[in-house]
Amino acid sequence: MRMIVVFEKGLPVRHIGHLDLMRTMQRALRRTDLPIRYSNGFNPHIRLSFAAPLSVGVVGLREVMDVPMSAEVTGAYFQQAMNRVLPSCLRVVSARSVSDTFPTLMALVAGSRIRIQLSICAEAMRVAEVFPAFMEATECVTLRKTKSGENMTNIRPFIAEGSLEVTGTEAIIRCVIQNRQDGSLKPAVLMQALCELAGITSVDYIAYREQIMTRNPQGALIGVEEYPDA
């Protein structure tokens, strides 16, 4: 039995790294009386897996993790038990019990929906000005770090959809990012490319990952947590 858990990683904890978040979740699980499955061996621990690591500094609204269980409990029970012990900036949004044959989350991930908020200032307006041109172009080359090193990469193909909204106080960029063979695109790299286009060195913004996506057997984009259990 496994529990597919959707949680929010809020603004105050957006600077916590992936391993630290993992340890925090393990400790939170230990504080509950939930029937968690421990690994065997010399140093028993809870083998958590996350759908996709979140870049440091990005707020996660619907992050997804997979928790091994030793007995069946309902998603609602799990959610309640966790929210009793988690700080208010880390909340379980929903939980769903799945069978052991459910695919690993990592294998399911196809992309994500992100939102970038910029408070209105001269730099933010420059970014807003160049965004439509960026969406119209087919190519936008910038320096991108991957496991195999730093490369000049055309990042435009990562953006499946993009929109811009400018209100009186902020500019909001929304994108659907699709993963490609060599991985995903970090919001920071997108912003760096937009800054280069805008001819500015940097801009202040807050990035949110709104949802981690997968494709259902019919090929439609859905939240990774909604993937059907066989």
Binding site: P12, V13, H15, G17, R27, A28, V85, L86, P87, C89
Partner: peptide, 9 residues
């Protein structure tokens, strides 16, 4: 930065 953000359990 997490040194300065508090909000721990």
């Amino acid at each position: 930065p997490a040194r300065y953000t508090g909000s721990e359990m």
